[in-house]
Amino acid sequence: MASRRSIEIGVGIFVVLGLAALFMLAMRVSNLSSVGGGGGYELTARFKDIGGLKVRSPVRMGGVLIGRVKRIAYDSRRYEAVVTLTIEDRYRNIPRDSHANINTSGLLGEQYLGIVPGKSRDYLKPGERILRTRSAVVLEQMLGKLLRLEGSVPAAEGYELVARFDNIGSLANGAPVKMGGVRIGQVTAIEYDRERFEAIVRMRIDKRYNNIPVDTSAKIFSANLLGNQYISLEPGGDEKVLKPGDRIRLTQSALVLEVLIGQMLLNKTQEGAGGKK
């Protein structure tokens, strides 16, 4: 065994290193100086929808972390979420007419509560409520819009087809074109034929899929209840295949969900808003 002295030195170094590591975890990795359990004062705010806000989510003003969400409760009489915030004591001067918004940092980032200061010289006191709030924007909606613009099939790599529909529902530029569930192309342009009162949809199909039969039908479907709409191609049995620029003759328009639901509620057994062309 090592000598007494080297044992003691070793243990001394061990303890110092251990405490230094703990210190680093406290000061550098986490943030000891920011609000935790200790100081700060509380404010509340009410929202219709808090989205993904959680206890301990940051509260920022001008992007600076000034506090954290302490508690989230639900007021089941007024159908509102009641959010309690802890704000650091140094930020005592939040104007009474400030806004509290639920924002998202980055596309995939966490949600936080952003405070946009108002102009009032009258400041919120501990325990008071921020009256002006804006609920969370449901990110999926925004994302859906953004994604539709991205990920397009390169123009040179495909050929174009056309289809006409009575009603395209919420089909948008960039929406996917699928066959058997597999994405084979996308919608490139949507026009309205004022004379025939039909929508003209142009789509670009990946050139790998150049064997689509002429008697293929095109239907507008929804990915799910809230999801985006897309065009589904259901291949026919003809030997002849569609050539670039051809038109798909068999189409089925979008089923407008609201109309469907309305009909179901009224217990009518009419056919849906779509029809075969």
Partner: peptide
């Protein structure tokens, strides 16, 4: 620092 909490995590 923003994400790691002294009490909750460390």
């Amino acid at each position: 620092q923003a994400k790691v909490d002294l009490y909750e995590d460390v």
